[in-house]
Design a protein around this nucleic acid. Sequence first.
DNA 1: CGGAATTGTTACAAAACGGATACATTTCTA
DNA 2: TAGAAATGTATCCGTTTTGTAACAATTCCG
Lengths: 226, 226
Amino acid sequence: MNAKPKILIVDDERDICEILDFNLSNEGYETVCAASAEEALKKLSADTSLILLDVMMGGMSGYKLAETLRREGKQTPIIFLTAKDTENDMLTGFSVGGDDYISKPFSIKEVIARVKAVLKRQPDTEAKNLSPLQFGDLRIDLVLKELNIGSETIQLTKTEFEILALLAQNPQRIFSREDIIDKIWTETPYITERTVDVHITRLRKKLAQHASLISNRSGYGYRFNI
Amino acid sequence: MNAKPKILIVDDERDICEILDFNLSNEGYETVCAASAEEALKKLSADTSLILLDVMMGGMSGYKLAETLRREGKQTPIIFLTAKDTENDMLTGFSVGGDDYISKPFSIKEVIARVKAVLKRQPDTEAKNLSPLQFGDLRIDLVLKELNIGSETIQLTKTEFEILALLAQNPQRIFSREDIIDKIWTETPYITERTVDVHITRLRKKLAQHASLISNRSGYGYRFNI
DNA sequence: CGGAATTGTTACAAAACGGATACATTTCTA
DNA sequence: TAGAAATGTATCCGTTTTGTAACAATTCCG
């Protein structure tokens, strides 16, 4: 249950990655390395506890990656790494929102200290909004990823469940296909909008008598009606 | 639920946009970026709570944009960003109705603090954007995209709803057909002005007993009367 | 008042939209 | 590894929405 915190190290300088990897592993953390923001996106998982993120990288910058993650609602803490000479006034006030900021060259001791500090102030993200959603005899369990109608358990695929969860957690609110794609296909952004329709169709079929819970506003998108 | 104030960031330096975008998103604001005054005009919407506006830009300057907006009656608060730090500039900024003024280079903390301050002294904005517009027994929910008369939900098409929303958010103000086309048909450049008339007719029909809320000033355009 | 300009209304064809299905591809699983 | 499940796209098809033209009604303004 209480496994080692997983730290994702993102830096395009392989030496830096290796040094951090070695030292943090040595401290008892589980580590994953990525040489680019793109790779980091792929390697980031739900159980990642912290990201050590180089700001200056070829391809997508560290900021851009961080922005992408926050946009997707990912709250994983981030410690930014930046070369001292590129740091400027505009960046100094950055440490907002629980994140941190370390200038290169840094000492390993410093990094470890900051990592510990960030992880310590990270509250349990569990058990917040995890009670099942209930709409009549329809129950959506966000923890078990299970949909029940009455006493029957409906078998939903991952995509179907996530779309349903997204809509049902915000009843009445209209989600455009783009909204849905952004939220569900976080790692595979190039998805045709009509694909959403297909999943909605499949979802409705499985929702059977409750199919009308998911309705469409022409030109706007889909929504979940209480 | 989605109480995020929307901030429009206007700067032709991509780095600045990116940094502001990221940090303000991180603070929980919804952000929209524009690389020019012209783009900003397009991206400005009724639910924009605040504009961060660079003064020095290619094309239309920030001041010019601000003037344009104020002349149109837009009261959206503006924080000017400028590299120049002279009293003259500061005066100009305020004279066109800007709410605050930040000199580059600025710290992110400072920007966030000013943004919060401006939004705080603008308590209406949040409620106005989120809570439905109410006129007697007529209710326009801009989030749910729903029109209610009494307890009845009126089915409006997207175009009808957007026209109604535009007019109702600015009661008494007259919108020319061109104004309306510019705001509603942002993607489709060439639309006959008479098309607006037809949508107004359809809207009035659905508004039924409230049809007279939308009136016409011959030669000028349409408006929403409280 | 009377002609001209402007606006309101209706009808209709074109376009857009959404639901469903078929199918190829990828992923999972036994 | 073979079969099953899941996924993404293309496409068909009925429905809704949209844009325009034509004509009626109203307003403007001398």
